[in-house]
Amino acid sequence: MDSAQLTAFTQTLAQGLLTGGLYALIGTGLSLIFGVMKVINFAHGDFLAIGMFITLALFRAFHLDPYLSLLVAAPVGFALGYAIQRFVLARLGDRLSEASMLATLGLGLIISNTLLLTFGAQPQNINVPYAIQTVQLGGVQLSIPLIVAGLGTLASIGGLNYLLYRTELGRAIRATAQNPLGAELQGVKTTNIQAIVFGLGVAFAAIAGVLLMPLLYAFPTVGENYTTKAFIVTVLGGLGNLPGAVVGGLVLGGIESLGAFYISNNYRDAYGLVAFLLVLLLKPEGLFGKTVKRV
């Protein structure tokens, strides 16, 4: 491999890993929700779309810098998720696994079609001067929004880690995930914890949406693609396995980027799907899991 080929490889891999960081962020939210409540959130990508459109609307209305909309999108996402768990999913009772899938599927359709009625089907983007600027890092050129996205992902996942393992709330969340009844007996208000967890998961999706907005066009059904990505990431890492979701995201980003570069760009979305099917069939507990968590 000569130096030009090596540079191309590093460039491709670096871009893939940064995109993979965003996948990790999306997947972590999904995996967190699954880990605590055994709910597969089919509306996950649509929450990401909400983040994108909040950014778009604030930019159009106030010319707000896209990254500042994080201050709006993350709390809105949290509140939305909290309310959905509290008022919809919590009422499904013991039919949870199947019914929650259908309920979130319905919520996703409601979100994407409401966005369609509000913003129209036309793909829209925002023009910020730094969106097309790049930085040279050790021979690799990377666009600024992609680097910000990578940093945002690191910060969010670091923050979640701190919350889960260093705070009293995190202890309550982990207890609820391990044994809801036991946690309840110890005085943890599990209905509240579950709503917080769903809120966190949705907030993560909304944050990912904000971080993606300078990179992509927003359109109402953009979420569909990302729901699939989130499934792939979480299954690669093992459903409910948070560090697994991070690695799964990076792996997916890397596979897509390298596959698109070396095999065929047309099949970019297929590499992840094939990896996903192989893991589902051969190692359903995920690439790194020891315990089988069959739903």
């Binding site: 309920a103 919520l107 996703g108 359709l109 409601i110 409401t114």
Partner: peptide, 8 residues
């Protein structure tokens, strides 16, 4: 949208 509302 109708599908979403009805399935919910």
């Amino acid at each position: 949208l109708i599908y979403g509302v009805l399935i919910l």
